[in-house]
Design a protein around this nucleic acid. Structure first.
Length: 622
RNA sequence: GCGGCCUUCGUCUAGUCUGGUCUAGGACGCCAGCUUUUCAUGCUGGUAACACGGGUUCGAAUCCCGUAGGCCGUGCCA
């Protein structure tokens, strides 16, 4: 039941509180009010609408917290909405309409609306079978924006109990980058975004690399040619450039290969049939272009933006099949999404203007376009796209590889990007991946682009680090600790992590901020010495060391008791001992509590450090 | 140029559909205080925004029109 595909849209427009510029569209008005309320209502609606099958409503489309009061306008749309009347006629009947017929019917009745009413008995379209995909192109290292797209797809799939697919869009041989695919795979793996179908994961709709399904595209393009919806074009790049040069003007700096110019070009529309055939037979380089209709509106509903419309006059005759025989993104994307039974396309906003082309193709092919959701872009803190320069000059991680290298935790990265363009509608900010799945809905995705905020990312990293069990923090810091030349035991490193984790930003900081746990300080922080080291400090520390040497236990409490007892004995404040002891033991004037720090360090190390400090710092520098 | 999308504290955002409860809420950052042997955490408080101009209305962040700005697209790239 492809019918489900139109459903979310009906909600999309009104279901939440977002501003939607245009809110026309008959179905939304028909289906919505009932669905927003649990009150039983008369069954007057489109057979495929949500009210007919409430259990099928996708969780991703869940409305905002606020319940919509039952509208007094409920029956009004029925009076003048053509689709609604159709619904009434069909209500209760169980006729199954073949997709092609229903598409044609819809196209006839509602030329500018996407098809909503299709019916088929395909089990892959079972209720709740949401199928979404992340379709990166292996042209470089995975970008943070790409990861966010993957995340949102993942969230939608998991929440709906559907499938998350990974498809590699490698149709551009010129921009292909050798290790890009591997980088994508390892990035997803690092984040824990597992996919159900894709390279290496199998699936019933493979292969999942477009280069491996290249024989599937030409027949589709040729079918469009046969049906008069596309045509062969033999123009060389130079000829096209010449046409553009000729037509270029201030008013039209980028002339199109379209309805107005295609008549003058070298293609199967202008050439005699035999000539076209001859060129084809001779294997002349050619492309297949979509024949974009003139003066036609193309309208669709975007899950995050509501209704969006374009005029075909702003589109050019999109190349579908390139002269190397490979499909362009547009063709491959449409064919694959259809063949893989994708129910919702979630991608970056840069694709919004391509969507009308896709819509035209779906319509020409008699296929139902999946729902679409265009995500707002992630911008650099300086405005504009997040670029390599931001990474190099601003220290801003851009590719996932940067995040890893800079020591960010995957949980934090996911949490941060999830909230860059989406919010749960309540005040929770720190989320685990599972919690994100639970809370996510496409309807709460923002429409405006978001600037990257490094401080906030760091804050998220701290938050997640604080919540991790010490053993885990220890494990994650291991590599960095070892890189510094330290090889602490697992237990010891865990104890250190427990003390340090709430005062570091990255797990790796354990190796630097906690270095004194692994090697004795050589020098003592100057400002600290100046402030805390007094004339009597050396003597006090020696006495403290002696006392500790005789202690039979060395836990934090024991150390503290001894220190306080000694302070009493010597008639000084505890601070007179505490601060110099910290300096002695860590070389610093700040850090974890001295007692627990000393307990972790152990008796032997502490005695040595206490005495050495007394030696080196002597009778006071101040 | 044209087309589309977007516009609430410095930043991420709630609120906009269904106008009053918004003297606009939360978070990051920053500042101050509390807790504390230090630092940090934690907690409390403070700082700071409805792009602009018209209109509709008793009432507009919210609806309408316009303007400005930003972004994306405008390829045999994806």
């Amino acid at each position: 039941m492809e019918a489900g595909k139109g459903r979310r849209r009906m909600f999309g427009k009104k279901r939440d509180g977002r501003r939607r510029k245009t809110r026309t569209g008959p179905c939304g008005l028909v289906g919505r009010p009932q669905c927003a309320s649990s009150t039983p209502r008369p069954q007057v609606c489109f057979p495929s609408s949500p009210c007919a099958r409430p259990e099928q409503r996708k969780p991703g489309a869940s409305p905002r917290g606020r319940r919509r009061p039952q509208s007094r306008l409920f029956f009004k749309p029925l009076l003048f909405r053509p689709r609604a009347s159709l619904a009434i006629i069909m209500r209760g009947s169980s006729i199954v309409i073949p997709a092609g017929v229903s598409n044609a019917l819809n196209a006839l009745l509602f030329p500018f609306h996407r098809t909503r009413m299709t019916a088929s008995g395909d089990p892959a379209d079972a209720p709740g079978a949401e199928r979404v995909r992340f379709a990166p192109s292996p042209t470089g290292m995975l970008h943070i924006g790409g990861l966010r797209t993957a995340l949102y797809n993942y969230l939608v799939a998991r929440k709906a109990g559907g499938a998350f697919l990974l498809r590699i869009e490698d149709t551009d041989r010129a921009r292909f980058v050798e290790d890009a695919e591997e980088d994508i795979l390892s990035a997803l793996d690092w984040c824990g975004l597992d996919y159900d179908e894709g390279p290496g994961a199998g699936g019933d709709f493979g292969p999942y690399r477009q280069s491996e399904r290249s024989d599937r595209y030409r027949p589709v393009a040729e079918r469009l040619v046969e049906e008069g919806r596309a045509y062969y074009a033999f123009d060389t790049p130079e000829e096209i450039e010449a046409m553009r040069d000729e037509n270029r003007s201030d008013a039209n700096p980028q002339p199109k290969y379209g309805p107005r110019t295609r008549r003058k070009m070298n293609n199967s529309l202008t050439l005699p049939e035999e000539e076209t055939q001859r060129l084809l037979d001779e294997g002349t380089d050619h492309v297949i272009r979509l024949k974009v209709p003139k003066d036609t509106g193309v309208k669709f509903t975007d899950e995050v933006r509501g209704s969006v419309s374009f005029s075909t006059n702003d589109l050019d005759d999109q190349v579908l099949l390139k002269s190397d025989g490979l499909p362009t993104y547009h063709l491959a994307n449409v064919v694959d999404d259809h063949q893989m039974k994708i129910t919702c396309v979630i991608r970056g906003e840069e694709w919004l203007s391509s969507t009308p082309k896709h819509k035209l193709m779906y319509d020409a092919l008699g296929w139902t376009m999946p729902r679409v959701a265009h995500l707002p872009l992630i911008m650099s803190p300086h405005g504009g796209k997040l670029s390599k320069r931001d990474a190099q000059e601003g220290g801003i991680p851009v590719s996932l590889r940067d995040y890893r290298q800079q020591g960010y935790e995957p949980e934090a990265v996911l949490n941060f990007i999830a909230l860059l363009g989406w919010n749960p509608g309540h005040e929770q900010e720190v989320f685990s991946l599972d919690e994100l799945v639970e809370a996510f809905s496409l309807g709460r995705v923002a429409q405006s682009s978001a600037q990257f905020d490094l401080d906030k990312l760091k804050w998220f990293n701290e938050q997640h680090l604080h919540r991790l069990p010490p053993e885990e923090v220890a494990a994650r810091s291991r590599e960095a600790v070892q890189a510094e030349g330290f090889t602490p035991s697992e237990d010891y490193l865990t104890d250190v992590a427990a003390l340090m984790q709430e005062r570091i930003t990255f797990a790796d900081d354990l190796a630097t901020d906690g270095a004194f746990f692994f090697e004795a300080p050589e020098e003592y922080e100057e400002a600290g010495v100046e402030k805390r080291w007094k004339d009597h400090s050396a003597a006090l520390l020696r006495a403290f060391a002696d006392r500790l040497e005789a202690a039979d236990a060395f836990d934090a409490e024991t150390v503290e008791n001894h220190l306080r007892a000694l302070a009493d004995e010597k008639d000084v404040g505890a601070g007179a001992l505490i601060h110099p002891a910290r300096l002695a033991v860590s070389g610093r004037s700040y850090g974890p509590g001295v007692f627990s720090m000393m307990a972790v360090l152990g008796q032997e190390r502490c005695l040595r450090r206490l005495r050495r400090a007394a030696e080196v710092l002597g009778e006071g520098e101040s």
